[in-house]
């Protein structure tokens, strides 16, 4: 087994995490579960960025910086998701995406 194969295995893991996350974000009715799907997608990005850093360009810090950015995106997503959930629940008593239809055309 070569380094490239290990990199490809890790990137396949990242693809699986992203695929599962996409399924969750599209299929779940609960707003909180949709957010968990998005977190899984970013989790896949974490794996991909770290393995790209280690197996392709470990001398440059860019892969690590991308991991930091992905972690921050995860935190921002959770904060704004919960804030929006609280706001929409307070205004409309809505906690499921199917009930939030104000913007439907």
């Amino acid at each position: 087994m070569t380094d490239t194969v290990v990199l490809q295995l890790l990137l396949t893991v990242a693809a699986a995490l992203i695929g599962v996350g996409v399924f969750g974000a599209l299929s779940q009715q609960s707003i909180v579960m949709v957010m968990m799907g998005i977190e899984l997608i970013v989790n896949g990005v974490l794996v991909a960025a770290a393995s790209a850093w280690f197996f392709l360009a470990p001398e440059r810090p860019d892969g690590q910086v991308l991991v930091v950015v992905a972690l921050v995106v995860m935190a921002v997503e959770m904060v704004m998701g919960f804030a929006a959930t609280i706001a929409i629940y307070r205004a409309r008593k809505v906690d499921m995406v199917d009930m939030a239809t104000e913007l439907r055309g």
Binding site: V20, V22, S27
Partner: peptide, 17 residues
């Protein structure tokens, strides 16, 4: 079970993977 369009979502997720 709190899902909508589970089959379509699974297809999209599998396609992305």
């Amino acid at each position: 079970t709190m899902v909508h369009n589970a089959r379509g979502s699974a297809a999209v997720g599998a396609a992305v993977f």
